[in-house]
């Protein structure tokens, strides 16, 4: 029960971020559904965000060493906003793709192949 009694450090947050990042990357690589790929991207961005917030937090450090402070939280905010923008455009592209090809499978987007 060591984990339960011991305080949480940045490493633990980084581990969560790493799992989310890898899950997102694998999702992006293996899914054939365009929206599935989009979800993978969201997971990757969130994994990065977890790291930013962890580095900015004052509670997870052992010493008085300066944390990333507000920088980390502000960058996390920007990432969230950018993710929203990205999702809107990607969704518009996906819907256009669906309208033109009558499928959502990205492997079928091979019009430019000779």
């Amino acid at each position: 029960m060591n984990l339960l009694t011991e305080p949480i450090g940045i490493s633990h947050y980084l581990a969560v971020g790493a799992v989310m990042f890898v899950a997102g990357a694998v999702c992006m690589a293996t899914k054939r559904n365009a929206l599935g790929i989009l979800m993978g991207i969201e997971l990757v961005l969130n994994g990065a965000n977890v790291n930013f917030v962890a580095f900015s937090s004052e509670y997870l450090r052992s010493g008085p060493r300066a944390s990333l402070g507000l920088d980390g939280q502000l960058i996390a905010l920007f990432v969230i906003v950018l993710a929203a923008a990205e999702a809107a455009v990607a969704l518009a592209i996906a819907l256009n793709f669906y309208n033109n090809h009558a499928t959502i499978d990205v492997d079928r987007a091979d019009d430019l192949k000779g």
């Binding site: 989009l38 004052e58 939280q73 969230i80 993710a83 996906a94």
Partner: peptide, 27 residues
């Protein structure tokens, strides 16, 4: 839990409440 209240609320509001609803809509 990391003390980033505002980022957490933003995550709920923009990410989960906005972006993901959009995604589900697309799905």
């Amino acid at each position: 839990l990391a003390g980033a209240d505002f980022v957490g609320a933003m995550q709920l509001m923009i990410y989960v409440g906005g972006t993901l609803v959009l995604l589900v809509f697309g799905v």
